[in-house]
């Protein structure tokens, strides 16, 4: 599926309150195209609660309910049961949450919903911070990144949500990135066709949060994949398949780019370069990514 072949229909209405260059809106537009109008969306506290615009207006042409921060997956469980009871089984229920609402405060409800095999798609758009509240650290924030609550850079590595999800043995999970709309579209489309719990995580570089120019969102996403900081893969029937450039990196057909190529464009890592290059910390990030890929190769190659 090429971009030009994506459905023309738009459920994402112009005039939203998103920042310029917002990856969440780009991703959402593609998700809406992949699922179509027959869906209901549950949104916990996250940027999307602002993006959707002010009551009584909306930027979405699909039924949407806001819910408390930690409650997306539980709320979606209820919506799914309610629709099913009314025989509306062809409607796709989508929980759409940020990384804070997924990795941290919402992980319990998410784990519960996956364990119950709730028939829904949980989508996490991961911008690696609490961006809506003003760029605070989350469980998805990478090592050494500046946030307003890790002023000297984060001292811990991020958790691997994908592996946590896979340990629930749901029928489908995937990692994708906003910079690859075809990949995103295909994965959402596939998730829609599968019954049971589906999880899709979208790497979503945030211009104000990561401190880069709003014109570079797509580039930051591509570089996340090409440096191996992020991987594109699918988990289906217990089997993990890597996609796109991530597949080539996994198979050793291409070498992943040095992490510096990615982080040097992001103000959140500026302290690693100015006033003096912090070789040790950059090396630590590099080593961590190498370890991750070694694990990937051992498990999934």
């Amino acid at each position: 599926m090429a971009i030009k072949d994506l459905p023309r229909e738009e459920c994402y209405i112009p005039g939203s309150a998103a920042c310029p260059g917002c990856p969440a809106t780009m991703a959402m537009r593609t998700v809406f195209k992949a699922i179509g109008k027959n869906m209901v969306m549950i949104v916990p506290a996250c940027c999307t609660a602002v993006i959707e615009s002010l009551h009584p207006n909306t930027s979405f042409d699909i039924p949407t309910m806001n819910i408390a921060f930690e409650a997306a997956a539980a709320g979606a469980s209820g919506v799914e049961a309610g629709l099913r009871k009314q025989g509306k089984t062809d409607t796709t229920v989508v929980a759409w949450a940020g990384d804070g609402g997924t990795y941290d405060i919402g992980i319990q409800a998410l784990s519960g919903a996956l364990e119950r095999q709730t028939n829904f798609i949980y989508i996490c758009y991961n911008n690696e911070i609490y961006s809506n509240t003003g760029i605070q650290r989350s469980g998805a924030t990478p090592y050494a990144a500046w946030t307003t609550t890790t002023v000297g850079g984060k001292t811990e590595f991020r958790k691997e949500m994908g592996e946590i999800i896979m340990s629930h043995h749901i029928p489908y999970a995937a990692q994708t990135c906003v910079s690859y709309p075809e990949d995103l579209y295909n994965k959402v489309k596939k998730a829609k066709s599968i019954k049971g719990s589906k999880y899709i995580e979208i790497m979503a570089p945030c211009p104000p949060g990561w401190r880069f120019g709003m014109e570079r969102t797509v580039e930051m996403g591509t570089m996340a994949v090409e440096t191996g900081a992020w991987a594109l893969y699918e988990y289906e029937n217990e089997v993990v398949t890597f996609n796109g450039k991530s597949k080539l990196i996994l198979e050793g057909k291409i070498k992943r780019k040095p992490i510096e190529d990615w982080i040097k464009y992001q103000g959140r890592f500026r302290h690693l370069f100015i006033p003096k290059k912090d070789v040790e910390k950059i090396k630590a990030i590099e080593n961590h990514i190498d370890q991750k890929w070694e694990r990937y190769r051992k498990c999934y190659l």
Partner: peptide, 20 residues
């Protein structure tokens, strides 16, 4: 729905009730 906490019990009731 046998949820994993009371918070989720109420959230699920809210979600279900919202479908009418």
């Amino acid at each position: 729905i046998c949820v994993e906490s009371e918070h989720s019990a109420m959230a699920a009731c809210i979600g279900a009730s919202a479908t009418g």
